[in-house]
Design a protein around this nucleic acid. Structure first.
Lengths: 332, 332
DNA sequence: CTGAATTGCTCAATCGATTGCGCAAAATGT
DNA sequence: ACATTTTGCGCAATCGATTGAGCAATTCAG
């Protein structure tokens, strides 16, 4: 039918049902009993709506309503299990609470992050969650001005409540595990190298502290040259190891699964020397367990982080210190 | 300020700027030159908007405009690189074309898929892309009724144009690679096993055809018991191999990275027998290259698929045969 | 059989931005 | 000085759904 070219509205249905637009509206949004519409008319309207392929215009509906129920999230990447799980679970938990989740991926680009935040605010999100954002405070400030609740996940900020992993403890435990395995597998006791991330990044800094403290507790000192926080790409991790050709036992703390890709490549290119190398990685991946030399991974507790996050949504609070969620150490 | 509790509107700005709402609107949406608003007033309005933390109400704007520029996509999961890349690139390419992308993840749940499709249509998407949907035709039918363009990605449907990988050729080439490597590495020539996926699924069926044809071309027949398309989970793949303890050379075609997780686990539990096993996987993962026994992976050309998809957006066409995008074989 | 309560529905304002139309004032031409 | 054009802006309708208020018809109480 040619008239199908225009989307149907409640006014179209009202004509067909020989009723008023308000009656149609209340039938369609479920308030018809409260508004004392007869079951007969309700049934008729629903039938006609079905026949006509009617669907709500959310823009019109949201414009009139006082609440949008939309919760927005920005995530940097979908290229690892951690952010993938955050996105999946955020959507699921939001739906379970009757909210409408909208996620957008910002490629670790600060400007895109900010643009995306503005777009989400324009879409009337009631709460905006910045996940792993490079500049969460810029977004929080913008949200404050727009009267939108802001929250930070994974990376903390000063201007909004933050839920993050207990990076320090996770890193300390992982470091200890790698050191132990170097001892038991290789009969070697020495300082590990730290590969990946950026020291300006809160999480990397916290993990480095845990890394160093675990060494100190065992009487080990880490030479400064062992700290190679050269960024978040696989190739950067690989490059940073090009000057390192272990002639004896060695161990590495890898700061993310992306960096792990580079470390594993380096490791595979070592040839027979690879058997003297042990490493572990902060962040989990299902294939990690099967990579030669990998002794364990830290899995961040995404579910717990999001549960904690959702307790904050809808109840604005001051920023305060970040809430720390314990990680799970997976030893292989 | 207390009045900040309500979001600012163009009417608020109009009062502050001593101008009309229409002038304010045209300044803010960039049509002020066309409407012959003086630069002086434009500057003033922009300054006040900035000061007041004004942001557009997209609902109101979209209600009035004739086009939304929103493109919607549903994806089943974010737990592998393939869908992750699809999501990332879809967002990037949509933005580059001035569209607003909205992606939602439906957990391979047919009902959730349909609910999500309805929600996206309510948000006035101009085009809805069903990625890897279990029932794309149901969604396409709904879109048709609502007057929204529908497209399928990754898995084809009858009721909307589809862009998918050339699964047949990719699988045939991968099968050939595994067979070759079994010959060269193990000096063995024999039928492979096929693990993962579901035969009712178009892609699995196409891949199985390629798998069988590659065997036939080399004069090999595959016993029916070698076909273990038992679903999409790692544990199902693992379980399906529990009755298989190779006492000699063996090879496996793995139908997805998720299934690969199960196969690799099985492989790692084989002990010393594992050295006689070779496998390859349809779909790519950065760690795949380093998994013992893995001889190669098929990388689907996400970028090409999406480019093809975007040529379709905005120019509705009949369904027709799926467009096939060649895959890239990565031999290790 | 009359007044009160209930039922079933409609009217009209409203949400915030957009846009065709039109009107004064200023600038320009002659 | 007068006619014409240009500049600068405001008015009011509109998009589609929601909702408080209210009206007529029906049912009920006594």
């Amino acid at each position: 039918m040619d008239k199908d070219r225009k989307r149907k509205t409640i006014y179209d249905l009202a004509v067909l049902a020989e009723a008023s637009p308000s009656a149609v509206s209340s039938v369609l949004n479920g308030t018809w009993e409260k508004r004392r519409i007869s079951k007969k008319l309700a049934t008729k309207v629903l039938r006609i709506a079905e026949e006509q392929g009617y669907h709500l215009n959310a823009q019109a509906s949201l414009l009139r309503r006082d609440r949008s129920n939309i919760v927005g999230m920005i995530v940097p990447k979908y290229d690892n299990r951690y952010f993938g799980e955050i996105a999946e679970q955020f959507e699921a938990k939001a739906r379970a609470r009757g909210m409408f989740p909208v996620i957008t991926c910002t490629q670790r680009d600060p400007d895109l992050e900010f643009e995306a935040a503005k777009e989400l605010v324009a879409y009337q999100v009631e709460c905006l969650i910045s996940t792993g954002a490079t500049d969460p405070d810029r977004i929080a400030a913008f949200c404050r001005a727009a009267g939108v609740q802001a929250l930070n996940l994974d990376l903390p900020g000063q201007d909004a409540p933050s839920v993050i992993s207990d990076n320090y403890t996770g890193a300390r435990d992982l470091t200890r595990l790698i050191l132990d395995r170097c001892q038991s597998d290789l009969g070697w006791h020495g300082a590990l190298r730290f590969v990946g991330g950026r020291l300006s990044d809160h999480n990397t800094a916290a993990r480095l502290r845990g890394f160093l403290d675990a060494h100190a507790a065992l009487g080990l000192t880490v030479p400064e040259a062992f700290i190679k926080a050269t960024g978040y790409s696989a190739s950067a991790a690989w490059s940073s190891l090009q000057d390192f050709s272990p002639s004896g036992p060695a161990g590495i703390f890898v700061n993310s699964t992306i960096s792990l890709e580079g470390v594993v490549r380096w490791h595979s290119e070592l040839g027979s020397e690879a058997r003297h190398v042990r490493y572990g990685c902060f962040d989990w991946d299902p294939f990690g367990k099967f990579l030669p030399g990998n002794v364990g991974m830290v899995e961040q507790d995404v579910s717990a982080m999001l549960e904690e996050l959702f307790t904050r949504i809808g109840t604005p609070q001051a920023a305060g210190a970040p809430t720390l969620i314990p990680c799970k150490l997976r030893a292989f």
